[in-house]
Simulated scan of single mutants.
Amino acid sequence: MAKYILFGSYCENALEKRTPYRQAHLEGLAKQKEEGILVTLGPTKDNTKVFGIYEADSQETVENLVKSDPYWQNGIWTEYEVKEWIQAF
């Protein structure tokens, strides 16, 4: 399977605004991790950007996971970009 990276941005006051969606978001990520699709995902320390690494059949698969995430659907993530990644080391 190919590897993909996700870069994205959070809305302002994301820590506060994410509260109603956080549990569903974490449960979805845990399922992706369990299925072997999600390698890692998390925010930058200043909570303005999100970064993730996925192993998937296609970029479309990763984009569909992002689009179905409660953070995307409720405006916590405000933009994202997915790129195929070549792991050199």
Rank of each mutant, 00 (worst) to 15 (best):
K3P: 00
K3W: 14
Y4T: 08
I5V: 15
I5S: 14
L6T: 04
L6E: 14
G8F: 08
G8M: 10
G8I: 11
G8V: 11
S9W: 01
Y10N: 10
C11Y: 05
C11D: 09
E12D: 14
E12I: 05
E12K: 15
N13I: 01
A14G: 11
A14N: 14
A14T: 07
L15F: 07
L15S: 14
L15M: 13
L15P: 07
E16I: 08
E16P: 02
E16T: 13
E16Q: 15
R18I: 06
R18S: 07
T19F: 04
T19L: 15
P20Q: 05
P20G: 07
Y21E: 02
Y21C: 06
R22F: 13
R22C: 04
R22M: 09
Q23K: 14
A24C: 00
H25C: 00
H25R: 04
L26S: 07
E27Q: 12
E27R: 13
G28V: 10
G28L: 07
L29V: 00
L29F: 01
L29R: 02
A30N: 11
A30M: 02
K31H: 06
Q32N: 09
Q32H: 09
Q32Y: 13
E34A: 12
E34D: 15
E35C: 00
G36M: 09
I37A: 08
L38N: 05
V39M: 12
V39A: 07
L41W: 07
L41T: 01
G42N: 06
P43E: 01
K45G: 00
K45I: 09
T48D: 02
T48I: 02
K49A: 10
V50F: 02
V50Y: 03
V50M: 12
F51K: 00
I53Q: 03
I53P: 01
E55V: 09
D57Q: 13
D57H: 10
S58Y: 11
S58K: 10
S58F: 11
Q59N: 07
T61G: 00
V62R: 02
E63I: 10
E63G: 04
N64C: 02
N64P: 00
L65F: 15
L65Q: 12
L65E: 11
V66W: 08
K67N: 14
D69K: 05
D69M: 08
D69I: 04
Y71P: 03
Y71Q: 06
Y71N: 07
W72F: 09
Q73E: 14
Q73R: 13
Q73F: 02
N74A: 02
G75T: 03
G75K: 13
G75C: 05
I76M: 01
W77L: 10
E79M: 09
E79K: 15
E79Q: 15
Y80E: 03
Y80V: 09
Y80A: 02
V82F: 06
V82S: 04
V82Q: 08
V82N: 05
K83Q: 14
K83S: 13
E84S: 10
E84F: 04
E84D: 06
W85L: 08
I86C: 04
I86K: 11
I86Y: 06
I86F: 08
I86R: 10
Q87H: 12
Q87V: 12
A88K: 12
A88I: 14
A88H: 11
F89S: 12
F89Q: 09
F89C: 03
